[in-house]
């Protein structure tokens, strides 16, 4: 099963195409890294996949053929948006209540245990938590929904290195332990190296590379994902400027 399938997918804002002719298949059971420079179209692609926006061209389906944004799709996908939006004036307990009420499945004991481990007090207002704690709370709420696919948009961009490490550890535990497929975007490649086994490289609204990380590294003769991406983007850039 593919967790995301896009064919000829495009999104236009006014006259600018944020994403163009995107055709790809993201396999289930993996952590997929969506990388590329700022403005490459990563957030656009994720928003289309979770149904927050509608395509201008082409089509996207998730979890083996469910229309993106359809009730069946939303039941199986948990999305943590950029800057982990939470209701700042609600307490942690209220956020749990909301997420439980708004979803068919919600693993309350998991959420409580996880927040306990993280030392996040239930009565604290979400807005009063540190950036790392807010990200962890958003991630915990998403994972407690027991999704088949977890989508994370720039989850660690705002976090310090320790919080970043802890966050990715939680993601990796969910992926390896519970078999959750993960699709995460980032322009910071260092943290993705350990966790991602599938790579999609976007730049200027187009898919430049897509495939298993080891296969891509072997074909392009690069030692690491970071260097592969860097090499590709440089090459691409020189192509454009030439």
């Amino acid at each position: 099963m593919n967790v995301v399938e896009a064919s000829g997918l495009g999104k236009r804002y006014g006259r600018t195409w944020a994403l163009r002719e995107c055709t790809l298949e993201i396999p289930a059971g993996r952590v997929t890294a969506l990388v590329g420079p700022n403005g490459a179209g990563k957030t656009t692609l994720l928003n289309l996949a979770v149904g927050l926006s509608a395509p201008s061209a082409g089509a996207v389906s998730v979890l083996g053929g469910r229309r993106a944004g359809s009730p069946a799709a939303l039941d199986g996908i948990a999305f943590v948006a950029q800057d982990t939006p939470l209701y700042k004036n609600l307490s942690v307990a209220d956020m749990i209540y909301l997420t439980r009420s708004l979803n068919r499945r919600f693993d309350g004991p998991y959420a409580k245990a996880r927040l306990g481990e993280l030392g996040i007090p239930p009565k604290r207002k979400a807005g009063k938590l540190s950036g790392g704690q807010q990200a962890q709370l958003a991630l915990t709420l998403a994972l407690a929904r027991r999704p088949k696919l977890l989508v994370l948009d720039e989850p660690v961009a705002m976090l310090d290195p320790v919080a970043r490490h802890d966050f990715m550890a939680t993601v990796l535990a969910a992926a390896t332990g519970d078999g959750v497929s993960v699709l995460l975007s980032s322009h910071v490649l260092t943290e993705l190296e350990r966790v991602a086994s599938y790579l999609i490289l976007l730049s200027q609204g187009r898919v430049r590379l897509a495939g298993k990380v080891d296969a891509l590294l072997a074909t392009h003769g690069q030692p690491s994902m970071e260097e592969l991406a860097m090499a590709y983007l440089r090459e691409n850039l020189s192509e454009v400027t030439r």
């Binding site: 939303l74 996908i77 948990a78 948006a81 939006p85 209701y87 700042k88 997420t99 068919r104």
Partner: peptide
């Protein structure tokens, strides 16, 4: 505040 990205991606239609 961007919380619609939370609210509109939950299971509730």
């Amino acid at each position: 505040t961007g919380t619609f990205r939370y609210a509109w991606t939950q299971g509730m239609r």
